[in-house]
Design a protein around this nucleic acid. Sequence first.
RNA 1: GCCCCGGUGGUGAAAUUGGUAGACACGCAGGACUUAAAAUCCUGUUUACAGCAAUGUAAGUAACGGUUCAACUCCGUUCCGGGGCACCA
Length: 1155
Amino acid sequence: MEYNFREIEKKWQKKWKDDKVYKVPNESTKPKYYVLDMFPYPSGAGLHVGHPLGYIASDIYSRYKRLKGFNVLHPMGFDSFGLPAEQYALETGQHPAVTTEKNIETFKAQLDKIGFCYDWSREVRTSDPSYYKWTQKIFLELFNSYFCNTQQKARPIADLIEKYKTQGNSNFTAEQWNAYTKAGQEAILMKRRLAFSSFGEVNWCEALGTVLANDEVVNGVSERGGHLVIKKKMRQWYLRITAYADRLLQGLETVNFSEPMKEMQRNWIGRSEGAEILFTLNPVPSPLGEKGDVETEREIDKETEKKGAALAPKYTVSSPMHYELAKKNRKDFTDAEDALWQAIRGSQLGAKIRRQHPIDAFIVDFVSLQDALIIEADGGYHENEEQKLYDENRTRILNEIGFTVIRFTNAEILSKIDLVKNQIKSKLKELSISKETQTHKQEAQGSEFSPPSPPRGEGQGLRSDTGLRCYTTRPDTIFGVDFLVLAPEHNLVSSITSAEQKAAIEEYLTYVKSRSDRERMSEVKQITGCFTGAYATNPFNGKQIPVWIAEYVLAGYGTGAIMAVPCGDQRDFAFAQHFNIPITNIIGNDFNGTEANATKEATLQNSDFLNGMLMKDAIGVAINKIEELGIGKRKVNYRMRDAGFSRQRYWGEPFPIVWKDETAIALSETDLPLTLPHAEKYGPGPEGEGPLANMTEWVQAPLSTSGEGQGVRETSTMPGYAGSSWYFLRYMDPHNSQTFCDRKASDYWNQVDVYVGGTEHAVGHLLYSRMWTKVLYDLGYIGFKEPFKKLVNQGMITGSSRLIYRYAWDFVKHPENFNSSSLPSIFVSKSKFEKWQKNDTQAIKEIRDFALELLKREVSNINEYSYLPEMSFYILRVDVNMVNGFELNVEEFRKWKNGEYSNAEFILEDDGKYICGAEVEKMSKSKYNTVNPDELCTQYGADTFRMYEMFLGPVEQSKPWDTKGIEGVHRFLKKLWRLFYTDINPATNTGGEPKWVDEKPTDAEYKILHKTIKKIEQDTENFSYNTAVAAFMISVNELADAKCYKKEILSQLLILLTPYAPHIAEELWAALGCEGSILDANYPVLNESYLVEATKEYPVSINGKMRSSINLATEATEEEAKQAVLSNDAILKWLEGKEVKKFIFVKGRMINVVV
RNA sequence: GCCCCGGUGGUGAAAUUGGUAGACACGCAGGACUUAAAAUCCUGUUUACAGCAAUGUAAGUAACGGUUCAACUCCGUUCCGGGGCACCA
C-alpha cells in the first residue's frame, strides 16, 4: 500500500455521505455542543484559500468535541442575498437567483472536497422563500413591537394601543387618542415601533439615478463613472437598536468574546455621560425681512390634520375637537395649576396668558401666543422614563413649531411661586426683545412634511427661536467655551445666519453636501468651517460666543451642536487657531498655548464658581448647577444610531408592508412569504427607489388587513444583515413550516457555543444578531439573551501578489510605418528593474541594448538609441499560480490570457531566471493573487490542505498565503504513513507491507504518546492549531526514530489526528482492524505518570545573562541548588570570585546569580 | 482622523504568559542512495568577529527610553503594516 490520498479521500467522503455520519439529531442522551461558522456570501469567484481558514478551525473543533462525546451541531448555509449578484445581473442580464444557485453549487462542491463535517440536511439559504418567509415574519414582530421604557424590554404594540385607548398618556387623553384619525394614530405609533419608517440621508447619484453604498463613493463622486454624489433625504426603514444600547452593553459582560472585540462594540455603542446645555441665541438681523404674525398663521390646516397630529406643519391646531377638550380641561384644575394661573393670569406679567390652549396635537397648560412661550405645570418630567420621553417629544415638537417651553413641577409652583413667576417674567422679557429685533421667521423646511422622527429618535429637528442645545461630556469646561459649532445640516443654520454671512454659508453648505461622512471624519487636518454671523450667550457668564458651522460636527451625534473649548479639545483648538478665534485658558499652566490638553486632572481657573476645583470633580458640580438653573440637564448619550434597514435594491427580502395614505400597513402572517417578483431589469425606480418600483403591477396591492381598497407595496428591500441576524436559529429547526424555530429545538441547542468568523463583522453583524436575539427573547420566542457564548476570530489570509516589470514602448519619436503596440513586450527581471531604479548604468545599458536589438529585428534599419523612448516601466500583476516562489514560469506566462504575451521577451537574472516582485494585499481575483483550494486538494489531498492552513500560523492572525510550505505538511503525512507501511521500491514494485505489530509499548514509547496527547488536547481546546500540527510532526519524528510500530501507540495517535486529517486517520484505523469509524472513537486519556522526569537541566544566568546550565533533581530545593551551583567549576569561572549578592531560584525554571 | 490588532532569521512562525529567543516547517547549501531524475534520508543554516575545528565572544525580537535579579512579554513615546468606521458581505 502507498499513501494514495486521492483514492482514500474519495472513498471515505463517499462512505461518510452514504452512511449520513454527519446527520445530527435534535434529541440525544449526549450533551449538546453548537459550533458555528459565519456563513459565506456565495460570490462568483468561488472559494479561495482564505475562506476555509475559519471553517477548518471550526471543523477541527467540532470533530474534537464529537470524539469527546458531544452531540455536535455544525451546520453550513449561504448568505445569498446581496449586492454583487445584483451588479452582475445589471451587467449581464442574468437573474441573481440563477447565478446565486450556480455559485452555491460551486461553493458546496469546493467545501465538500475539503472534507468538512457539515450536516447539509440543515443547510439554509437566506434568499430562499422558505427561509425569508421567517425573516419577514421576524420583521413584522419588530414592526409590531415597541420598547417599553418602564420594563426595558420589547412588548407587543397592541399593549401600547390598549393603553392609549383606555388611559392616553401625558400628551393626550384616551378621548383625544380615540378622536385622532387612523393616520394620526399610526404616526404616533410609528415613533415607538422597533422597526419603523422615517427619513434619512442616503448617497444619491443623480446621474445614475440611484443610491450608492459608501464603498461606491470615492471623493464625492461615484466609483463607477465618476458622477457627482450628494446627500439626499429619503424615506427609509430603521431598527430601533438604540433602545437596546444599554442591554447590548451589559450583555457583553456575559459572553466570551476577546477583550478587543468587546471594546470595539463598546466604542460603537459609544455610551457617554454628560449634559445638554441650552445656549440662548441672540437675535440676528433678518436676511429675508419678512414679518411673521403668529396669530394669523395659526389656522387650522385640514389637509395636514389628515396626515396626523405629529406630522402637522407649524402654527396649527390639529382638530376642532381640541378646542372642546381644552374647554373641558379648564374646569378641571389641579392645585398647582390653579396657583400658577392666579399668579400669571390676565396680563399681569406684561403678556396675555391663556390657559389650556390647543396647539398642534397638544393642549398646553399656559401660553403667551404673542411671545410664543408655553408654560407647563406638571410633575411628569421627573417621574418615570416613559413619561419623560413623552414630555421630551412634546417639547421638541413644540420647539419645532416655534414655541419656547418652560416647565415647572407641581412642587416648585406650590412652594416657590414667586421664583416661578419671576422666571416666567424674565423669559417673557427676553422673548419680546428677541421678537422686536428678529423680524423674520424660519423658512419652511424643504421636504413636504417634516419627518415623524429623526433616525436618532430625538435631538435633531430642534428649532427654537431662542435656544440651542449642545451636548457635552465636559460641562466642567463651560467657562472655556469660545465658540459653538453646529453641524452643517443642523436645522437652525438657515434661520440664524446673518445677511452678511448668507452667501458664505450657502457656499459652504454646497461644499459639505458633496462630502461623505468618512471624508468628513478622516481629513481632520484640513480644517473647514464658516461663521454664521450669529452669537449665543454663555448661560453662566453672559459671554457672547460666535456660532460657526463645520463639517467635523456630525448631525447624527448628540444634538448636532457642540460647545467648543479650544484649550481642552484638540480639534476645537485647531479650529480656533485656523480661524483666529481667541482662546480662553481655564487650566492655567496645564495649557501651553500650542496644543489642547484634554486632561480631567487640572485645576480650574477663570471659571467662577468652579474655580479651584479639579476638573473631574467639577463635572458633577457643573451639571447640578445647570439643572438647578434650568438651563440644561444631565444626559446619557450614545454614539450608535438606529440601524438603517432598507436598501434601494432588488436582490433582498421584500418588506411585507403596504402603504396607504402615508400609513404603513403590515401584511398578515398568512400572506407570507411575500415573494420577490421575477425581474427583467434591475435598474433603479423613477425616483431612485429600488428596482421593484418599476414593477407597476406588483406594486399595486390590496390591503390584506382590511380587505378593502388598494395600496402600494414598499419597494425597497431589506439589507444583507436581515437574514444573517437570526440564521443560527434556523439551523436548529431548518424544516419547520409552522414557525422559524420551535421553542423545543432552541431550548435544546440553546446558545452557539463557539462562533468562528472574521473581525470585520465585529460591530455590524454581531450587534444586529445580538439585538434580534434580545427582541425574540423579550417576546418569548427563545429562552436566551445572547446568541453567541464564545467568539473566535480568524485572521484574514492575504494574497501575495507577484509583480512583473514591463518596459514601456512609449515612443516620443516614431520611426515611420510601425506602431509601438505591435512590438513584443519586454519584461525585466526584478533585480535589474531595481538597479534601473537606482540609476545603475550597467543595467540601463543592458536594457537599452536589448530594446534596440529588438527594435532592429522588428523594424529594419533602426540603429540609433535616439529611437528608444525615455526609459520607464509598467508594473503588472501576474497570476501567482504561474510563479514558483518568485520565479516566473515563462512558458505558462506566454500562454496566459489567450496568448496576449505570446511573443514577450525577457531580460532575465544572471542565473537565467525571471524573478518577480511581490506585494502583500487582499486576496482578489482582479489582482491575480487568489489560490484555489480545489487545486491544492487535488495535488496534495484535503488532509494536507487542512493541516497546512492550520500550520500557517495562529488562526486569529492575518497572514499572507504562500503555497510553498505545503510540501512540508505533505511530507509529514507520508512519514506518518511509513509508520504503518514499508517503503515501496518502484524498481522492483515491492514493499508497501504492513509494519504494525501488536506488542506492549515501552515506557519511552508511552511517553512520546502521552506527551502528544497532552499537547494536542491543550492546543485544540485553545484553538492553537499551528502548534498542534508541530506537535504531531515531533511525535511522528520521534516514533520513526524509535522505530515504534506498535498498534496501541499508533491507534491512539490516529484518534488524536482525526479532527485534523480525518481521511488518512479513518483509512489507517480501518487498516489496523480497529472497530467502527474513527469519527466516533473514544478520545485518548492522558496519563501524567508517563511524563514525570527525575532530573531537570536548569539554565544558570549570571546577572541576568545566560552562562551555563546544571543538572539537578526535579525535586531539588533552593538550598540544594545554591550549593550545587556555587560549587560548579564552569559557573565559578564566571563569578570571578565576586561576592554573590542574590541567588534567585525558580523551581522547574531557572537559576539567576547576582554578583 | 477615531477605534481595534500586529511588527521576532531569507520565509511562515515558536517561546510553558516575566525565566535558556528562533521549537516545528519552508527555502537554501552540502552530502548519501540512483546510470539519471523523482522520492527518501543525513548534516548545516540569526548576524558579526575569531578559529582548521569542536567552539568562543559580542550584538540581536520595528526604533528609542523606562520598570525588574531577569523583558519578545509590562509601561511610555515614535515609525510602519492590517481591519472597522454604519448601503461590500
